[in-house]
């Protein structure tokens, strides 16, 4: 127990307390921290357009990215329950992309979605699309590139849904079928409620990690912007990939604005807590424990 207590104090408690303190200072690591009161928070909320852009980007990613991932996860898991033979092979294939290290996966997608030489756009061009998207090179489509990347690696969510789906008692479907429910109704009124706890779990985890989205955005920006200095590429194109954690990293560790970064971290913490609390509050309405049918 005691190593954990030491670790907990040194690596969690002390940093939390001092980061709260730093959030009220200007601190560049080279000179002593200067207490500035609420200045960092004032600047953040009233004078820093990049902050708001990073918030908007992140909320978009959490909203669109996480929900599409859940939908696609449920779809792929459902599809995996169909075959009576070969299910394991399909499952392995569907899961494989999840194993690709995020950096490698992002690099691969930057290439696959390259507007001129990437196979996806060549295919779209061959299909007669005149102006296929520029993907990671255009602010309008860059985040969709990341969404696709997220869907490709849907495996971890999918496996959990699959376990949930296989846990649904068969009698429920049979009962529904006897009562004349079609496939969609069976899905809507049997499957969905039965796996709602799993959806809830994935939603909470997705939201928490969505707010910390970093690696894929970092890699995509650095690989596409062509800028010699990696840190100057962050957010490319046009700040559309400037997610909250990316911006925090830039402020804290490339500009050495440690005080400001700490303030951002606390705001992040509070937003995450608020969103999670909100999901928990609403969960009573749509999460069904104990298999009760609606």
């Amino acid at each position: 127990m005691s190593p954990w207590v030491v670790g907990f104090s040194v690596f969690i408690v002390y940093p939390m307390v001092s980061s709260l303190y730093f959030s009220f200072t200007r601190y560049d690591l080279l000179s002593e921290p200067v207490f500035v009161g609420l200045e960092n928070y004032r600047f953040m909320f009233t004078q820093d357009p990049n902050f708001w852009q990073s918030v908007r980007n992140t909320l978009w990613m959490v909203g669109v990215g996480v929900s599409l991932r859940i939908v696609f996860g449920v779809v792929t898991a459902t599809v995996l329950t169909w075959p009576r033979r070969g299910a394991k092979v399909y499952r392995t294939i569907f899961f494989l992309p999840t194993m690709a290290p995020p950096v490698a996966a992002a690099v691969a997608f930057v290439f696959v979605l390259n507007p001129r030489i990437g196979p996806v756009n060549q295919l779209l061009g061959a299909l007669g699309m005149e102006h296929p998207p520029l993907w990671f090179y255009s602010p309008g489509s860059a985040k969709w590139g990341l969404v696709l990347l997220g869907l490709w690696g849907v495996g971890d969510a999918m496996i959990i849904f699959l376990a949930g789906l296989l846990d649904v008692p068969r009698q429920l479907y049979e009962a529904a079928e006897i009562e004349g429910a079609g496939p969609w109704q069976r899905f809507r009124f049997v499957t969905l409620p039965m796996i709602s706890p799993v959806i809830f779990f994935n939603l909470v985890m997705g939201v928490i990690s969505g707010f910390q989205y970093f690696t894929q955005a970092y890699v995509a920006s650095v690989a596409t912007s062509g800028n010699r200095v990696a840190t100057q590429a962050l957010g490319y194109p046009q700040g559309s990939m400037l997610f909250y954690s990316v911006y925090l990293y830039q402020q804290g560790f490339t500009y050495f604005r440690m005080g400001y970064a700490s303030a951002m971290a606390w705001v992040l913490f509070l937003i995450t807590m608020a969103c999670t609390a909100l999901i928990f509050r609403t969960s009573a309405r749509w999460v069904h424990y104990g298999g009760a049918l609606r």
């Binding site: 390259n114 001129r116 520029l134 255009s138 062509g226 010699r228």
Partner: peptide, 15 residues
């Protein structure tokens, strides 16, 4: 602009 971006995206790296 779009034409130029497509062109750039297909060019080799600076180094």
């Amino acid at each position: 602009a779009a034409n130029l971006k497509r062109f750039i995206a297909g060019l080799g790296g600076e180094w």
